[in-house]
Design a protein around this nucleic acid. Structure first.
Lengths: 229, 229
DNA sequence: CATGCGGGCATCGTATACGATCCGTCGCGG
DNA sequence: CCGCGACGGATCGTATACGATGCCCGCATG
């Protein structure tokens, strides 16, 4: 393990550490990220930290202001919605392209994962549920031969990372619906349905979660959408 | 102007310079980018250059190998196809979301731009044509209220930047078809067509260009797609 | 007591310096 | 003549250092 981390450059190490801390909530939104302090803590100079922070900025996890510093990006409702909406399109696209390449074995694995999810419904552990959920989703997009598109899916997941843990906490009811939708999507894939049909199913599946969340707010999804920015 | 550039950090300056040089072909694909040399030329140290290169890496314009260095990313057929395909989905998505927000004035402006394009068909200047073409496309995606999605569209355009100049050189016939397709898309928008319908039209419009290019190759688009990676 | 100004502190931005790594080349031995 | 290993140059990775910038707090003044 040490040998493994050794061939990781320090800036990559810093990236991982800070990324993980943002994701797991150690660094809450709005937290200032002082380069020097982080560097000292990780036993390195500011230079690698700086590079790590800029990469995190490119991924939207931190905001950066010249001569002022970096802080963990705030997660307002807008950003949550925007990220989910974007991922719904991108993930759908990846599923579309991947559809012809999804093997029967992959579908079988996805079914198995979904069975696990169903088993977890009784007493819901949002974190574990979300992790397995991601594995299932990736089963459908990993076969996508378009590396660029897969990369966008990855970025979307990473952006959501620090929200995901709480997503199913917000709307527990979604978990059950979600499992059923997974099965319907897998039915489509198995039946060799039109790729566009699969795409739209995946898209709708993802959008259902933020919509369910917004349904609990005063205004419904559409109204929210209108006022939004 | 000097005042303007003055408040640009050196790393941002380096980013622009190198970016532009890659786009305009001064740095051809495969060209090595030596940090020290660039820094010296721009009158700065390697540190800002390094940061600029990493940003370019994040955008896919350069590849970076640890302890070896950076070079301008090669543009193989795969990457061209992947980028175009990805942009087709992302741009379609942005158009979908933007549809309700596209004003009559915006459509009018798009019509005007398309008229300009039509006028340019006689003797085709690929660079000018492509620039106006981008303006038209942006008319349809800029009203998209999802900033994240708009950002993905931007990234896609930037990735294509160094290809765009030559796109219509490759397949001059596409220019004429393209103008007609623009009008049909604008018809849909004007008629208040279903957003999904608009999305699919935009998607098909973009995919038509690489397909037209591939049609000139031995294998057709579908066959190419199959073998691809 | 409120408000504007100035100084000091925290932090960033960049330069310079040095060790680490890789690649090509030269020389030696088979 | 060919292969293999050691040396050297080129370039990257990071540390340290210092100037630049913005922010906060206290003081003076109306």
């Amino acid at each position: 393990m040490t040998a493994e981390t050794a061939q990781l450059s320090k800036s990559q190490l810093a990236f991982r550490v800070v990324h993980d801390r943002i994701v797991d909530g150690t660094y809450p939104p709005g937290q200032r990220l002082v380069l020097d302090a982080i560097g000292t803590e990780l036993g390195m100079s500011v230079v690698p930290v700086r590079e790590a922070i800029r990469r995190l900025e490119a991924e939207g996890l931190v905001t950066f202001e010249r001569n002022v510093g970096a802080r963990v990006a705030e997660i307002d409702e807008h950003e949550y919605w925007d990220t989910m909406e974007t991922l719904s399109y991108v993930e759908g696209a990846a599923a579309h392209v991947a559809a012809p390449y999804v093997t029967a074995a992959a579908v079988a694995r996805a079914r198995e994962l979904n069975a696990q999810l169903r088993g977890m419904l009784d007493d819901l552990d949002p974190v574990a549920f979300t992790r397995t959920n991601e594995l299932l989703h990736r089963t459908l997009t990993d076969p996508c031969p378009n590396a660029h598109l897969r990369d966008l899916v990855d970025r979307g997941w990473r952006r959501l990372a620090r929200l995901r843990a709480s997503t199913f906490s917000f709307v527990p009811a979604r978990a059950a619906e979600s499992v059923d939708e997974h099965d319907r999507i897998l039915d489509l894939v198995e039946a060799g349905a039109d790729a566009l049909e699969i795409e739209l199913a995946v898209r709708a599946h993802r959008l259902a979660t933020p919509n369910a969340y917004l349904r609990r707010a005063p205004q419904d999804g559409a109204a929210h959408r209108q006022e939004h920015r």
